[in-house]
Amino acid sequence: MVMNIELTHSFMREAVPLARQMEGDWTVRMKIALNLVIINYHLSRPLTIENVNELIRRGVSYRRICKNYGIGRKDLTELQQSSIV
Rank of each mutant, 00 (worst) to 15 (best):
I38H: 04
I38A: 08
I38P: 02
I38E: 11
I39L: 01
N40Y: 04
N40P: 07
N40I: 08
N40M: 05
Y41L: 13
L43K: 04
L43H: 01
L43A: 02
S44M: 05
S44T: 04
S44D: 07
R45V: 07
R45Q: 14
R45L: 15
P46H: 05
P46T: 04
P46Q: 07
L47K: 01
L47M: 07
L47I: 03
L47E: 02
T48D: 00
T48S: 04
T48K: 02
I49T: 12
I49N: 09
I49A: 11
E50W: 09
E50R: 05
N51S: 08
N51A: 06
N51F: 10
V52A: 02
V52K: 00
N53K: 13
N53P: 06
N53M: 13
N53L: 14
E54I: 07
E54G: 01
E54C: 04
L55V: 01
L55F: 00
I56H: 10
R57H: 14
R58G: 08
G59F: 15
G59L: 14
G59T: 12
G59Y: 12
V60M: 00
V60A: 03
V60S: 03
S61Q: 01
S61A: 04
S61T: 05
Y62K: 12
Y62G: 09
R63Q: 09
R63D: 10
R64M: 07
I65G: 07
I65M: 08
C66I: 03
C66Y: 00
K67N: 15
K67Y: 07
K67R: 12
Y69C: 01
G70L: 06
R73Q: 13
R73N: 12
R73I: 14
R73D: 13
K74H: 12
D75L: 14
D75C: 11
D75Q: 15
L76T: 05
L76Q: 03
L76D: 05
L76P: 06
L76K: 05
L76V: 07
T77A: 14
T77V: 15
E78R: 15
E78C: 11
L79Q: 03
Q80K: 14
Q80G: 07
Q81S: 15
S82T: 08
S82M: 13
S82F: 11
S82I: 12
S82D: 15
S83T: 04
S83Q: 07
S83Y: 13
I84E: 14
I84P: 06
